[in-house]
Design a protein around this nucleic acid. Structure first.
Lengths: 130, 130
DNA sequence: TGAGTAGTTGAGCAACCATTCATATAATGG
DNA sequence: CCATTATATGAATGGTTGCTCAACTACTCA
């Protein structure tokens, strides 16, 4: 039983009838949807993956609430893992394009990017919804 | 060396001066940022985590491009993993609140939720940015 | 230049994840 | 009912991830 067999039955169920060309047509329009998958999907996915971790999620929400850049030493007391884990987290967030980094002497400041802000906004706008 | 020592030095660096109460004040305002972390952060994170997987990300983009509900048998030929993996993926997406499910006889139809649509929009709006 | 501080990096390990295969459920048509 | 079809589920397993500890770099100031 091939994929197109199943499709054929689906179309017959939906439309009452189905000939070869109907299947081909449907398959073609389905395949067109694949073009909607972005070329740099990997970048998107790594942003999502990075944000899905508790430590990193919390840091982004903190930076977002602060609405200013925060020094690493300001973040440390707010998150309950080792300084090293926070440093790893910030580095991952930076790699994923979710925070910017600024150096000032020995201090290092981080701030959310637009991408992080948009994702946070999307989550906030749809919480408890549907 | 405690956390507050470092904060004290930071504030001294920033403001030229720093007394005990400055540290306490800063710490208090920092701690207030924690309130911005949503109560159901876990739900958010599982949505992000679910969407970060290639198979599930692709399915959401396909559903989003289709702009209509798709039958499982329409999704199968578009994604290069086993039917079982797609079924798992759809089930995970459903659990994460990213797709709705509708039964019609033996066919099962899936469609994106608002939450998925908002996340996709956030990604689309910030791609290649900053 | 050397002691001290802020933050980063890498290895290692336990926990978690994504896929597949095999099997199960549920609906449909003889 | 029985066979068939569409999809779901569970266990197994190879791969990935996130934390901590220890070592490291980079900057400052005396």
């Amino acid at each position: 039983m091939s994929e197109t067999d199943r499709l054929e039955r689906l179309i017959a169920d939906e439309c009452g009838e189905c000939c070869e060309s109907d299947v081909a047509e449907r398959l073609e329009s389905l395949e067109a949807y694949r073009d909607a998958i972005p070329d740099d999907a990997g970048t998107d996915r790594s942003a999502l993956q990075t944000l899905s971790n508790e430590t990193r999620y919390d840091i982004v929400y903190l930076l977002s609430a602060a609405d200013r850049e925060l020094c690493v030493c300001e973040i440390n007391p707010l998150v309950d893992v080792s300084d090293s884990a926070i440093s790893h987290a910030l580095s991952d967030l930076h790699d994923a394009g979710l925070v910017t980094r600024r150096k000032d002497g020995t201090w290092r400041y981080y701030e959310t990017t637009d991408r992080a802000a948009e994702l946070v906004a999307a989550l906030d706008a749809t919480r408890g919804g549907e």
